[in-house]
């Protein structure tokens, strides 16, 4: 019996709900968008707090500069646009005026990855986590579902410093605790196991949960860990898990270069040399299609996690 959840919600609505809550509880929070308030579910905030909502038009570079400037006097700007336009399009602005300058800007990015679906490759950024984690001092977060995205939105307002918060477009299972307290940089062990560590982020966490059940039917006891914060990585949790299981799988909706897998590989080679298989996009761009079909086609589903887990287990103790 594979896990099912009737409660389906989009992570972007979790952001919108969290932002609305922040509007009520934190006077310093201001929200900016580059003509995508509806897509980012920011309309409720805009309606309730028009004096703290700034429409920048389709001008993302300006929006990032405005956000950096707004931070004076303690404001906490939340920028909202698609992940593609939140990162690559404005990388230089973020690098100089937000990251180097240490400005307390929250870069909130929707429609990340293949699950953007029908809009196609130009919008399906699969490089954003890598771009953002390369910036010194940038916190990079990719929550797994609606509840966690909401909790993360609330949490980043309490943290001082630049943050990249990534979420997505489609409805997906909403399975994490509604009342959870989001701890930046703290991995969540969803199920303990001894045979293989599966580190998943974002939409792939649910796939990892499904994969665990398939693996269990095959007699494999997998440990499932939700790494919602790619940077700073919860090194302690990763190391402790791999010391026990001796092999690992990473799973993310991102290019295999630059994402969670690479971050974990960096840690393992340094601290706990062990086989690591990556469930990620194989250095290619996406295409139009339904989210589910694309995730399957590009190898980002439970079946692929299972296959990579078995491969990783086979490689235990083998140096080649």
């Amino acid at each position: 019996m594979i896990a099912t959840v009737k409660n389906l919600k989009d992570t972007r609505s979790g952001f919108g709900s969290g932002l609305l809550e922040l509007g009520k509880t934190n006077q310093n929070v201001v929200a900016l968008t580059a003509d995508l308030a509806g897509s980012l579910k920011m309309n409720e905030f805009a309606k309730e707090f028009p004096e703290r909502f700034i429409q920048c038009g389709v001008a993302e570079a300006n929006m990032m500069g405005i956000a950096a400037g707004l931070t004076i006097g303690g404001k906490i700007p939340f920028t909202g646009t698609f992940a593609n336009f939140s990162t690559g399009r404005v990388y230089d602005q973020i690098r100089q005026s937000i990251a180097y300058s240490g400005k307390n800007v929250k870069i909130c990015a929707s429609h990340a990855g293949l699950t953007l679906g029908e809009d196609g490759a130009t919008h399906q950024i699969l490089e954003d986590l890598g771009l953002m984690k390369m910036l010194p001092g940038m916190v990079v977060i990719n929550p797994c579902d609606y509840n966690q995205t909401r909790a993360a939105t609330l949490a980043i307002a309490e943290y001082f410093g630049p943050v990249y918060l990534r979420f997505g477009r489609p409805v997906v299972p909403n399975f994490s605790e509604e009342s959870q307290k989001f701890e930046i940089g703290k991995g969540i062990i969803l199920k303990k196991g001894k045979d293989v560590s599966i580190f998943a982020t974002g939409h792939l966490v649910w796939e990892a949960i499904k994969a665990e059940e398939i693996l269990a039917q095959k007699g494999i006891d997998a440990e499932i860990i939700n790494i919602h914060t790619i940077k700073p990585l919860d090194e302690k949790t990763v190391i402790e898990s791999v010391l026990k299981t001796k092999c690992a799988v990473s799973a993310e909706e991102h290019n295999k270069f630059g994402g969670l897998g690479e971050t974990i590989a960096h840690l393992l080679t340094r601290e706990v040399p062990a086989p690591l298989e990556m469930v990620a996009v194989n250095d290619t761009f996406g295409e139009s299609g339904t989210p589910e079909d694309l995730m399957k086609k590009y190898g980002l589903d439970a079946a692929h996690i299972v296959a990579q887990a078995e491969k990783s287990i086979q490689r235990k103790g083998i140096i080649r």
Partner: peptide, 9 residues
């Protein structure tokens, strides 16, 4: 853009 943000603030 940054100076504009400051003016806005």
């Amino acid at each position: 853009p940054v100076a504009t943000g400051i003016a806005m603030a």
